[in-house]
Amino acid sequence: MSEPLLKVVNLEKKFPIQRGFLKRTVGQIHAVDGVSFEIGHGETLGLVGESGCGKSTTARLILRLLDPTSGEIFFNGKEIHTLSRQEIRKERKDMQIVFQDPYASLNPRMTIRQIVAEPLIVHGLANDDADPAVDEMIELCGLSREFGNRYPHEFSGGQRQRVGIARALITRPKLVVLDEPVSALDVSVQAQILNLLDDLREKFDFSYLFVAHDLSVVSHISTRVAVMYLGKIVEIGSREEIFDNPHHPYTKALISAVPLANPKQERIRKTTRIVLTGDVPSPANPPSGCRFRTRCWKAQEVCATSEPALLKIGNSYVACHFPEM
């Protein structure tokens, strides 16, 4: 295989926990702890995991919206982690992001056309928002160009998310990071956005990093899937492998927990469902060894003492001492 578009090696991010009058640092949240993966050209990597496991942080690190504590990010032949603020600004033409909350991610004082045009103007690709490329992109994303002069508050959630997508795609980036792009939308509107993302991928040949907590959505859109737990990737593989033949106990539990919209099947699944006990531990104080051991039904002594490495099993990479076969 040729050089992947994005390669992340041992990415780490610690947030300080600050307290008191002078904001002393009293501890650290290890939000992302040694994450490595690759995304090839035209590929969609789904990143799933429960709330707080570090999905959004990983996404922001890749774009350098946050600075990594350590680790390397290779994108499009550049070492993103070494670039200065000035240099990274230029790189953003090729890597864009769509946010979860379509209400919060659009500046209420700017018109739709100004919002979509901003990346072009910022990168000197257009002088103002009258550029024909802007209206074209607005229409491609399923909005009428007549609404270019309107303000975000006049649109519904789904329509705003289309604006967010148009803004991310206008510079024809090579990588688009989607941080839960449909989680805030109504169920009947999600499909519209998922289809739009599919169509655009076909048309422009982007790679997507698709962050989500909804496994059904991820299974629909991804070509490969990475499962995160407490700042680490516990399993990564092709969509088919992850969903049909999960190896990591956590992946298995996660998939089994998803309620299917099919009552007959649910009745069968219910009898075999793996219901995990307890909650995700705090990332400020993760368990030793395997981080999943406090909830894992297969945990043994070795799980508490030694951290499992991400090893190849079948077609996936799995971090577990006793993987399911």
Partner: peptide
Amino acid sequence: SLEYVEAARATGATTKRIILRHIGPN
């Protein structure tokens, strides 16, 4: 801390532009 300011940073906007167009007016 609002998402659209982060979104502006993600588009590659300069600090000056972020302050003048996004933070200031709001």
